[in-house]
Structures are given as C-alpha cells and as structure tokens.
C-alpha cells in the first residue's frame, strides 16, 4: 500500500509507484495526488525540447552532473513516443543518463506518450507534482516538441530550453514550428560539427528580431522591454554546447539558474505558475467532464433510444444527438 508520508520523504519506490498509478489512470492515484498538492511549488521545472537526435538526453546527462556539483537533487522525466500501430514504445533516453542511476539524489523516469502522440499528457504534469513533493530541487522534462498534446512544454516547464544542431537553415525551421516564441534558452548542441558558429549567429539574429517585435509593442521607446504589468522581461539567451564532452554545460547550468533568479526577483515566476495552474485546472475539468460523459454514453437510455431511432430511420444522427444533449445536460450548461 502506498503511503503519502513515504512520498513526502522522497522514497523512490513510493514515488515511482504513484507515478505508475497516475500513468495507468488508476483512481487510487487521485486521492494521493490531492494530498500532495500542498507540498509542491518548490521545484524548478526545466523543459528540454528539440528534434529527434539533437542530443537532448546527452545534454540532460551533462546537466544532471553540473546540478549535482551544486548539490541540487535532480529528477528527470523523459518522454518518448508511443508507436501508434502497436501501442508499444522504446524508452531509450535513460541509456544516456545511466551513470547517475545509483545516485540516491537523482531520479530518472522514462514515460511513453501513450495517447498524446509525441507530446505531454496530464500524466507528465501529475508526475512533476509527485517529484516536486518528493523534494527534488530541479525537474527536467525531455520531449520531442512536436505533435498534438494536452500540454506543450511551455505550459508545464518554468523555463524552456530548445536544442538544435548546426546546419544552415535550421533556424528557419525553428521559426516555422513556432518554437522561437516559446524558448527561453536556445542551445546549439553538437557545436563540434561544421557550421556551429553560423547557426549560432543565425539564431541570435532571429531572436533579435523577435525581441525588437516585442520591443516595439512596449512604450515608451528607449526603455528596456516591459511586460504588461510593468516588469522587465527575460531576454532569451543562445549558447553553444558539446553535450558529449561537457563543453558549455557549466555556462548552460548557470544560465538556467540565472533565469530562475530573474523570474523570482521580478515576481514573474509566480504569475507564470498561476497561468500554468489555470491551464491545468481547465484540462482537468475537461477530462472529468469527458469521463462523466463517456460513462453516460455507455449507460443512458436516451442514447440507446436515439441509436435505435437512427437505425429505424425515424431520425437523422444530428437531430438525435442534439435531442439527447438537450434532454440531459444541455440546459444545465446554458445556465
């Protein structure tokens, strides 16, 4: 039996099992999650995203090392896609971080995206709640940023690091995918390969354009860019790394920590958390309503009658569906 105190005191076994229950959608997980909620809000959540093979896992391995040097407790959630054909998944990120497996202050959890092709599910969000309550200082989430998902990385992480690799034209792709807007720190990994400087400069240029767009929106001119509530905004940074041999990782680690400092000092972390909480709440609400509705569809006599009527050509499917909604929840939602 899972005990809430074991999770609060950081037991890997208890925490891991709760995450499993969450993942499997077990009702017993909900009660435990509820009582853990009060213990959260302390961890710094970092998202690492980028195309397949750019070196995200290797980079996280190196980051864990640096954060451990600073005596931070580190947890990782590494999301890999579920095969839409077989429902299976190879969870291979951990392989690159395995040297940390025996460190009691490091916890690495691989997660298949399951229903959320290539993206983040509510399970990933709830897993961060568990890890936060377990007392980890840093939670790093690895995800291939593409695809449909309940949450994109920016609505889950406090700070998003976008990893790319040198290649002319890669920056252009970044803009296409719209990720230039969501990144807080941009990492040109594999900078031991050709065109690293070019890609670095290209990215810097694009971010400058992004900034001047934001800058133009803020008045009066001549002052540092401000957000709506009058606080300064974080200026995105670009860094070059070689994840394999650790080059640039110390700077990257400090950039993440200076981001956190900046956000805290300017009261921006709180407001970011509030926005993210709102999204989480709305997602939960949708999920709970959907659950109820699915149960209703399985049991309701209205649904059965409607299906019958459609089959007998008494009515058309659209009218039948409208009728069921009006008869049952329609009026409640209008109120």
């Amino acid at each position: 039996m899972l005990k809430i105190d074991d999770i609060r005191s950081g037991s890997h076994l208890a925490g891991a099992r709760l995450i499993r229950l969450i993942e499997d959608n077990e009702p017993s997980a909900i009660e435990l999650l509820k009582s853990l909620y009060a213990n959260t809000g302390k961890a710094f959540i970092i998202g690492i995203t980028g195309s397949p093979g750019v070196g995200k896992s290797t980079l996280i391995d190196a980051l864990i090392f640096q954060f451990r040097e600073l005596s931070k407790k580190v947890a990782v959630i590494a999301v890999d896609p579920t095969s839409p054909y077989t429902g299976g998944a190879i969870l291979g990120d951990r392989l690159r971080m395995q040297r940390h497996a025996t460190d009691p202050d490091v916890f690495i959890r691989s997660m298949a995206s399951r229903g959320q092709t290539g993206g983040l599910s509510r399970a990933a969000k709830d897993a961060t709640t568990v890890l936060d309550a377990m007392g980890f200082d840093i939670i790093i989430i690895e995800t291939v940023g593409a695809g449909q998902a309940q949450f994109d990385i920016a609505s889950l992480a406090h700070c998003v690091g976008i990893v790319s690799i040198p290649s002319s034209g890669d920056g252009i792709q970044a803009v296409k995918a719209g990720i230039l807007e969501t990144g807080d720190i941009f990492i040109v990994n594999k900078s031991d390969t050709p065109d690293a400087d070019l890609s670095f400069i290209e990215l810097c240029g694009m971010l400058e354009m992004r900034q001047s767009r934001e800058f133009l929106r803020t008045l009066p001119p001549g002052l540092p860019p401000k957000t709506d509530n009058g606080h300064p905004t974080w200026q995105p940074k670009v860094l070059k790394t070689i994840a394999q041999d650790g080059t640039g990782i110390k700077e990257l680690t400090h950039t993440f920590l200076s981001y956190l400092d900046f956000m805290k000092k300017n009261n921006l972390l709180k407001s970011k958390q509030k926005t993210q909480e709102k999204l989480y709440f709305k997602t939960l609400l949708k999920d709970l309503i959907l659950e109820k509705i699915n149960g209703f569809m399985d049991e309701s006599k209205y649904v059965e009658t409607a299906l019958n009527d459609i089959q007998l050509n008494i009515t058309d499917p659209i009218s039948a569906a409208q009728h069921v909604v009006n008869k049952t929840i329609g009026h409640k939602i209008k109120e």
Partner: peptide, 16 residues
C-alpha cells in the same frame, strides 16, 4: 529483443 517487445505492445526501457 527490445524492438520485438515494442512491436508486441510493451513499453521497453533499455539500460545498456
């Protein structure tokens, strides 16, 4: 074996 298990619907963690 990892690939075969994935194709059979398992979630496979390979630790090296």
């Amino acid at each position: 074996v990892c690939l075969a298990l994935r194709d059979a619907g398992f979630e496979v963690i390979y630790s090296g």
